[in-house]
Design a protein around this nucleic acid. Structure first.
Lengths: 236, 236
DNA sequence: GTCTATAACCGGATAGAC
DNA sequence: GTCTATCCGGTTATAGAC
């Protein structure tokens, strides 16, 4: 139906790609607000109406950006995940890869979180529409803990990928607001919090903390089920 | 100079108030987007240009909303903070008061926090412009721990208000995305996490976790200083 | 110097012709 | 699938009234 999702392989696919590339370049170069739809259209050599034929709104272009950086992140993680074995090194590597992947877009990141914070927007990472992407992203963190020496209880093991995904969202939030040169503060944050997480996770297995861990994971699981199941409200 | 901050006590003060009340009412009734500046002006019985004379942008109206709910929250906390003595009860009371205060605005909270999330915006809670409000809000959490039986090391004690403020921001973020009836999920989240925080804080004093706590609080303090000092960059 | 009103401008989005 | 013309709403310029 709409040519707005999978460009498939028609003639217009090339036009679509041209508009997308142009807009991402302009976002990088001039930021989001300064990049008007009229400018994107002009630079891509199409009319405004035509740009809207392929992307139903300016925001939609952001979604394309998300997808792209996510894919780039996956690629950037391949090496660490293949070579490193320790939990800390793997997590650190994945987080570093993330920061490196999104850095070129820092200037335009403001708008990202802005739209991401809107509960109405399909772009927000907690929305039902984002579930597939979220699952994929969480799967990455599952790979971080798979095949490591990490010894944790099975209930924590099941929730850990989600917890790490949330942690990673928090880091991105910090990054967005980070005005230090080269995002120095965010890098320090990661370097400091990754070992912290590692230690806390290991501590969670101690008998002393067993009941606390168990209750927390149970609650987490319940919340997650409730949210991921498409509004299976009270009455059937 | 600008009549946009303190209305003082002139004749225009009444006009300003009328515009503000009208817009807040319309936001509640029709949502943010459906409330145009032209409509606000018409309903308030002024011209569009006049509305802009008192509020430099539509966003500014949101700032007024913030201020109002913050003040309402303070009032709503007076009782718990005066009567309760235990840390858990005090924190729970303050969080409950928060949720109760903002609940009437849940419908259009998305847009509110959307603009607040923009790093460029003076409205965002992490901005330099928000420092005074942030300090005030953090002070509220300092009052939560003051005069309780809570026994924690002095370094953690110093950082705890900030940590609780961040926790409270996270809860609000969850609340924004909470579509359950009566915000049931958020309430459960608070009920579950408050005791968890209490337990973790107490555990932090154990010898086993002493070094972990010390290193974390040191890092937190450093980060906070760096952020709160107005960009005291490398070179003087 | 305080306040008000009208007429634009600008950019996101849409309608409808080709 | 592509274009032109147009709408709509936030915002600003400007001219002036009290």
């Amino acid at each position: 139906m709409t040519p707005q999702d999978q460009p498939a392989t028609g003639k217009g696919a090339e036009t679509r790609a041209r508009i997308l590339e142009t807009s991402l370049r302009l976002f990088r170069e001039r930021g989001y607000d300064a990049t008007t739809m009229r400018l994107i259209a002009a630079e891509a050599g199409v009319s405004v109406g035509n740009a809207y034929y392929y992307f139903k709104s300016k925001e939609t272009l952001i979604q394309a950006f998300y997808l792209r950086t996510h894919e780039e992140h996956l690629v950037a993680c391949v090496e660490v995940l293949a070579s490193e074995e320790g939990f800390e090194h793997r997590l650190l590597g994945v987080m570093d890869a993330k920061l490196r992947t999104i850095e070129p877009y820092h200037r335009f990141s403001g708008i990202l979180f802005k739209t991401a914070a809107d509960p109405e927007s399909a772009l927000n990472p907690f929305s039902a529409e984002s579930l597939p992407t979220r699952r994929e992203s969480t799967a990455l963190f599952a790979r971080v803990i798979e095949g490591t020496e990490l010894k944790v209880s099975s209930d924590l093991w099941a929730e850990l990928p989600n917890l790490l995904w949330i942690y990673h969202m928090g880091v991105v939030l910090f990054w967005i607001h980070d005005r230090s040169e080269g995002r120095r503060r965010t890098h320090r944050l990661v370097e400091h919090t990754v070992p912290l997480i590692s230690r806390v996770v290991r501590l969670g297995s101690l008998p002393l903390l067993r009941s606390l861990t168990r209750r927390s994971t149970a609650f987490l699981r319940e919340l997650r089920d409730e949210i991921e199941l498409p509004e299976a409200s009270d009455a059937s």
